[in-house]
Design a protein around this nucleic acid. Sequence first.
DNA 1: TTCGAAAATTGATATATACCAATCCCCTTT
DNA 2: AAAGGGGATTGGTATATATCAATTTTCGAA
Lengths: 237, 237
Amino acid sequence: MDNKKTPLYKQLKQGIIQKIERGELKPGDALPPERELAESFEMSRMTVRQAISELVNEYILIRRHGSGTFVAELKIPHGRRLKSFSEDMRARGLLPGSKVLEKTIIAEPPASIIADLRSEGKLLMLKRLRLADLYPLAIETVMLPIEKFNNLESRIFENESLYRILEDEYNIKITKAQQKVEVRMPTPQESELLEINYTVPVFHFKQITFDQNDEIFEVAHSVYRGDRYEIETEIYS
Amino acid sequence: MDNKKTPLYKQLKQGIIQKIERGELKPGDALPPERELAESFEMSRMTVRQAISELVNEYILIRRHGSGTFVAELKIPHGRRLKSFSEDMRARGLLPGSKVLEKTIIAEPPASIIADLRSEGKLLMLKRLRLADLYPLAIETVMLPIEKFNNLESRIFENESLYRILEDEYNIKITKAQQKVEVRMPTPQESELLEINYTVPVFHFKQITFDQNDEIFEVAHSVYRGDRYEIETEIYS
DNA sequence: TTCGAAAATTGATATATACCAATCCCCTTT
DNA sequence: AAAGGGGATTGGTATATATCAATTTTCGAA
């Protein structure tokens, strides 16, 4: 993990996230004190603080002055916070997982995708089976304009959050998404991958995601099992 | 401004916010470079960065490496407004309609509703078929604690907005709602009322609605045809 | 004039240090 | 055993400095 390209504080951040996702750190657990982390990872306390600060901003950790830093309790849905699959699962107390089904470069994207992305270049298509507690929950197909994300395909591994890679490696901050949700019956291929009977309906999410410059950087289609998933939202007038 | 109690970086943060609010800094405008701010406000650059970092996290400023720091473009306040069925239909260019199926007083509400409403009294149950351009689109079941709404049952007529009655006659203002959305197959009764084949899946919305005092005043269940309805949302992080 | 390389500018990462402030915890006193 | 005081622990604020990396600007060569 001593990659010279990735900043130190991001490496620490990743390490902490992994410990949480592996269950080595559970909600309510205390992190080692900042001074201790600094010493054991051989970095300055300021650098440790930068890693922790970002995690606090993402509601993953909580700081208590004089007391310590703790893994955040799983909470009621964060209003309408935009969540990645991993965050969503964690918030529901489930272990997120992922299995890459397809990773392809599409030279000539279909017209509907071009219209959504407002760009005509080549696409990276990433199709993943999403797991919750090791059982299939969703099929997610993400399409990204390849020219914006150099060498992205080689950085994608199983069980790693795509959004985190985009944020940490390409400095993309997700700010907004437009989403349409339909309900329909699964295709034969979908019901096989999701391991459901053909009589179980599915959610079909169609999402367009915007970065901090209000540019579209992703079009995603997700198909969720209707028998094991429900949407929770809080709406304001 | 040299208040010894408030941290330096917060003072700077406040100052920047005020300049934006007064219009001295407009969306798209560049802030002075960090080194310059540090010098003119007589603080270290790290302190300046802390102030700016918090504003970046709040999407008030945007940093561009090598270029500068800028005031963020205005966000659209809220993508997800709480809409009544009528508003929702009109926004989609459809003519809303309504047909009362049942209007009953329930003396002994089921446990699940008591838990949601946090009140044990009698309920008014109102079950309506919702129409879009005169065709059935949804079945909506609303439950209200009768003691809060004296004589409400006699004021409900066809094709009148329940929310409007509550607001005008009982001074209830809707502020917030929690919603869960499931997908499932319709019951025989539902498919008959909605005039759909038994193979067409439906959305099932379960909503708890809060008034201006954060008190729950309504529990609603709605079943929407999956072949003629889709959810559209805009999500922010 | 146009292209491209070099320089300047600006934010990003990282270290070392100092002291303040809230909380915790142990030990003394009652 | 309970209450209180006071030091130890832990996060919070602030400075000074150095170097890297992305972008913009400048300016010379073609």
